[in-house]
Design a protein around this nucleic acid. Structure first.
Lengths: 136, 136
DNA sequence: CAGTATCCTCCTAGATACTG
DNA sequence: CAGTATCTAGGAGGATACTG
């Protein structure tokens, strides 16, 4: 099998970025793998309506307040979600995805589906690898 | 803008996985963001031929021996690269991408291109966010 | 309700030195 | 050449307690 990607073009595109832009690009891509980021985004996108902090915490099972706060701040700073504070008592804060986030999710989704569809291959590869290591 | 993703189907697909499979799926997806993983894979895929350890180290600028070794071991275990040892002195070890890795790269590539294309938006979002924080 | 603040532990990853 | 071994600093992220 041959790579269908035009690597020359891809590398040229990378070279065209300033160091700062390159670093930011990397941060955006690698941001999807911070532990709760994708899950949080997915819940907001699936809802198709703003969600309050506590509703998100319920849906993203296992996340701590501290981690969720951090994730939401980062997503807000990256322009992937909006945060709206209502001047009420008790306070109400609503989060919602931006169009930028929906674009990104549409690109991440195929990757996730592919990984899930091929999970048996990964398990087989790992089992085979672990066996080879044991022998030696 | 409305999400084009069928979230019901997506969540159902997740539910269908065992806990182990789900965790492995996550590991594969998040693996792309470990610091040197994608770069290493890209160099091997772009070469379209096996590369020796030292050639990879030259191309992946800045990676340490230890980190590269770890990345290569993980990729090998996940079935994304092959490792071939030649019984020679001095030793020769050649690494190459598998078809599974090329499939994955074809899904990761659009995401990377999108991030690079939208880097200006992310910079603008961050600048705007940082300004808002300063005011308060 | 929606967070901060503090403490703590594990993991990542670099630097350096050594080896079959 | 292609690693392994050891030490270390820094960050991620959980638990818990407190607050406007």
């Amino acid at each position: 099998m041959k790579s269908k990607i035009d690597w020359e073009e891809a590398y040229a595109a990378c070279e065209a970025l300033t160091e700062n832009e390159d670093s930011l690009t990397r941060d955006i891509v690698t941001g999807i793998s911070e532990k709760w980021t994708l899950w949080t985004l997915a819940e907001l996108a699936a809802e198709e309506a703003p969600l309050r902090f506590s509703r998100i915490m319920e849906r993203v099972e296992g996340v701590s307040q501290k981690s969720l706060t951090k994730v939401l701040r980062q997503l807000e700073r990256d322009g992937l979600i909006t945060r709206k504070v209502f001047a009420e008592v008790p306070p109400r804060v609503e989060y919602a995805t931006t169009d930028l986030a929906l674009e990104m999710l549409e690109l991440v989704h195929p990757l996730w589906k592919w990984a899930a569809a091929n999970v048996a291959k990964f398990q087989a590869a790992q089992t085979s690898y672990d066996l080879r290591q044991k022998k030696n």
